[in-house]
Amino acid sequence: MKFCPKCKVKIENNLEICPLCQRPVQPLDDVFVTEYPSHPSRRRLVTLMKVIGFLAVLLITGTVLLSAFSNFQWVWSLVVIAAVVYLGVSIVLVVKSSKNIGLLVMIQALSLSVLTFLIDHAFGYYRWSINYVIPFLAIAGTLLITLILLFRPMALRDFFIYLLVIALLGGFSGIMLLCRWVTVAWPSVAAALYCVATLAGLFLFADRRARHEMKKRFHL
């Protein structure tokens, strides 16, 4: 114990100055209490995000400047900006969702779809993104989560919502086919069929769990 003559209080920690008035204290005896770690840790995720943000700003401004000096080829700088934003978001999400593969797969499938569509659109819109990339992304994502679920049936409650969203991406491919936006039919047909099959399997074979998940996830 220590004693602060100014505040007239005892201090149970082994301190040199009084925590109340910051003045030197007098020793009383050698019995001290330690309630807290002396060098506690603080979270540092914010710093990583700041570094990524800073690099992204540097890259984007550099690209815009470069394009300004090379006959204003804005298209290229837009592609770089989209790619940088995608990369930054991906890194942050990988760090944040390192324990949830389903979330990772879903985010990648969705953001890659958007990114490739933007690139395709920027360079003449030859429709390779909606013809091939999006349907195959939907198939790959659904397949990946289905495989995980086959080995770990208990993980359904973790992955259900992501499976649903990626399957809807496949469904969206089918809709694009019906609207005649897609010029090559077979990948979209395959994706739509595969996703319908997955959803049918999910609700038929895991009907109770699937319904239960729907109830939980969408309760008002």
Binding site: M1, C7, K8, V9, K10, L15, E16, P19, F32, S38
Partner: peptide, 28 residues
């Protein structure tokens, strides 16, 4: 730490014996 200081000094002046603990790292 003005507010805790006043709070505890007030109680001390009312005749209570106060023991302070805190999470400042110990001298050692």
């Amino acid at each position: 730490t003005d507010i805790p200081q006043f709070f505890f000094r007030f109680l001390q002046q009312q005749g209570l014996e106060i023991t302070i603990g805190c999470n400042e790292p110990a001298a050692a």
